[in-house]
Design a protein around this nucleic acid. Structure first.
Lengths: 145, 145
DNA sequence: CAGAAAGGTTCACCATGTCAAATATTCAGC
DNA sequence: GCTGAATATTTGACATGGTGAACCTTTCTG
């Protein structure tokens, strides 16, 4: 089940672990600078594309629905989000970002400097290489294993 | 401060965000399968290279030292880790992984299937390209910006 | 129409994280 | 050497994120 990885692949995995740590830290800091937690920022980001039922938020974030209740509660308290009734199914509550919520989310997204400088330092051809390689990895990793 | 990114770089950033999410989920699951939390697994992984003072663990994980106290407490309760006195400075407690701790950490590391299949699908030359590009990104991103 | 199923919430519980205060030890200056 | 500042860790209070079970309301199905 867990065949050995060649040393080069191990190196790549370690580099990705590094990337993950760096990205995470930057995201938390950017959120925190706006008095948001990482989880709150993630939910707000999810809602950028439109309202979404609680259940679906939970599925997307791979967590229990009861967890989302609390996060949305806190976002709602601050006026960043509102619960709406679903006209077709009265069990469902759709969560929608308010104007303020959308603003906060957009601002946060733009403030994310992650890898901006180092990416800019790559040649265009290299960026394209990187994109193609990452694409294949991400596609492959998304397959059920 | 937040100059625009070209579309190609944006694509790369999005791909990395995807990678980050996938990696994170897999790491949490692997830890959880061994009754560890992500934080506990990270500390255990840190100790693979040898004992480390509480303070240094906190710095490496970018959190408050008081937070580490609790995490190490729980690892120690389960016999995965031990606090040792530092002979040169009696304020310092060095945390060392026990035999069981090292085993658990090694097992977890080996169980990480992240990107294993997709990486294996790359040509050796492509893996090398990817390693070099990621190296430059990680190095660049670590610089204070 | 009765019972199962689905969406949300509540509650109890634990882990992670912060901050402030307390303790013990070491260091620096006089 | 002594005093006071600085350092390493712990403790306690508190907020948040996360799970799981029990519960209510609404919808679906036989």
């Amino acid at each position: 089940m867990s065949q050995q990885l060649d040393p080069l692949s191990l190196e790549v995995v370690d580099l990705m672990a590094n990337l993950v740590a760096l990205f995470h830290k930057e995201y938390e800091e950017a959120a925190s600078a706006r008095s948001l937690t990482g989880a709150q920022a993630k939910v707000l980001a999810l809602l950028r594309r439109g309202p979404m039922p609680m259940r679906q938020i939970a599925q997307t974030m791979s967590c229990e629905p009861s967890n989302i209740t609390g996060i949305v509660d806190r976002l709602e308290l601050r006026g960043l989000v509102a619960r709406q009734a679903d006209p077709d199914d009265r069990r469902i509550k759709r969560v929608a970002a308010t104007e303020a919520g959308r603003d906060a989310s957009a601002e946060l997204r733009e403030s994310l400097n992650f890898a901006r400088a180092p990416l800019a330092a790559l040649e265009p051809a290299e960026r394209e290489q990187l994109r193609n390689l990452l694409q294949r990895i991400v596609e492959g990793a998304k397959q059920p294993r």
